[in-house]
Design a binder for these strands. Structure first.
Lengths: 225, 225
DNA sequence: CCGGCGCGTCAAGATCGCGTCAAGAGCCGT
DNA sequence: ACGGCTCTTGACGCGATCTTGACGCGCCGG
């Protein structure tokens, strides 16, 4: 399914994890120290990294920092229970999750799946969305409506992204506001009405009778292909 | 996913909680004292509030009381004291959960998830309800009756939610009124008759002979599949 | 047979949410 | 500094939705 890099200097733990991960059909890479880990991340670009903070050569947080300089790969940090400061630091540096030892293998597997899923969701670019009337290329930021190139503003693109992540699904006003304008905009405002209007004018065949950008009164909007 | 407000005057605890919550992909807002907390609740309408009772300016219970004057947001109360009086008082004032310090971060995270679920995703838990004649998708707010998409109003959905929580079971008029129109509407009124009527017209094969939305005279209504 | 009670039905008025417009502020490149 | 493009914000009208009151009908007990 996915490639997981296990970074740990304890051969026993490494072995246990490898077996468990392979049993769940992950591809497993291993590294015993920080330098090797960095090399493997660079060479193989794994989908998930499991990183023990207690390493022989480099400090675990240092490894994490360097990984983050070049990669957004999800990192799950392992640490002994008492090193809570490390934990805090690791998460600040961009770890995606932490697990304190001792831990159950099942728990770790669940977190690997979760991390992979989160990354996949983020990484999954919207690519191209096509309807009978217009085409949206999110990667290129190009919109073609009825054969003509149309300019959309940055905010319009972001609204569309939030709506098109799951075509056909309802997106609540709150979700829309938060993913476009940030967490603080949880309440109603004119934004959505104005931008829904704007988008309909630019995209819909007949803005007065929306076919793709559907409003769900009191709830939010739905984008249908 | 959801926005959590952490109200605590201990910077260390605040930091730990923030990091843990962010690691589980919540948005985090913080407040060091009661006044700020009230302002943030009013301005940002978070999805969950974690409230420490020991605050510098206002008494924690007072903060809770004022939050409840304007908002139904789920509140999880933290307290160092083992005094059960506080616990009782807090729960009376409308706290949704109560955690005594010291506590495990995982435990708190679980309670945040639980609180968020109770409050936000009421519809989502119901999933899809299907009968021989119509299908209701509460998450997507879609109703298909005899193969056709039917539009239901927000209040109609809320009534259906209350009815469908336990298909086949009797739901009393009081329960219905309370869960749709709020705690103050314990008394009889026309609401239920009007909306039962409305729903039957939209959903029943023959509104004159209800097969799914059954009246229990003097008691309430029953939804049967 | 009669009267009360509870439910179904209807319709009118009040209210709410959305679409629309436009003015002004902020930002950027020139 | 200037001009153009965006974003923000307030105002307004309209249609959908909610609320409320009135009325009729059937059931049940007196």
């Amino acid at each position: 399914m996915s490639t997981v890099l296990v970074v740990d200097d304890d051969p026993r733990l490494q072995r246990t994890l490898s077996i468990a991960l392979r049993a769940h059909s992950h591809h497993v890479l291993t590294a015993n120290d920080g330098r090797t880990a960095l090399a493997v991340v660079a060479e193989e670009s794994p989908d998930v990294v499991i990183l023990d903070l207690g390493l022989p050569d480099l400090d675990g947080t240092e490894v994490l920092r360097r990984i983050r300089q070049t990669s957004l790969v999800p990192v799950i940090v392992l640490s002994a229970r008492h090193e809570s400061d490390d934990k805090v630091e690791a998460l600040d540096l961009g770890a995606d999750d932490y697990v304190t030892k001792p831990f159950g293998v099942e728990e770790l597997l669940a977190r690997v799946r979760a991390a992979g899923r989160r990354a996949g969701d983020i990484g999954r670019q919207l690519g191209v969305i096509e309807t009978s009337h217009f085409t949206l290329d999110f990667a290129e930021r190009r919109a073609v409506v009825a054969g003509r190139d149309i300019r959309l503003t940055p905010t319009e693109w972001r609204v569309l992204e939030a709506l098109c992540r799951e075509p056909g699904h309802l997106v609540t006003q709150q979700d829309l506001l938060r993913s476009v304008w940030g967490p603080s905009y949880g309440r109603e405002s004119n934004y959505l009405r104005v931008y829904a209007n704007q988008l309909r004018r630019k995209l819909e065949p007949d803005p007065a009778v929306p076919r793709h950008l559907i409003t769900e009164p009191g709830l939010g909007y739905r984008f249908v292909l």
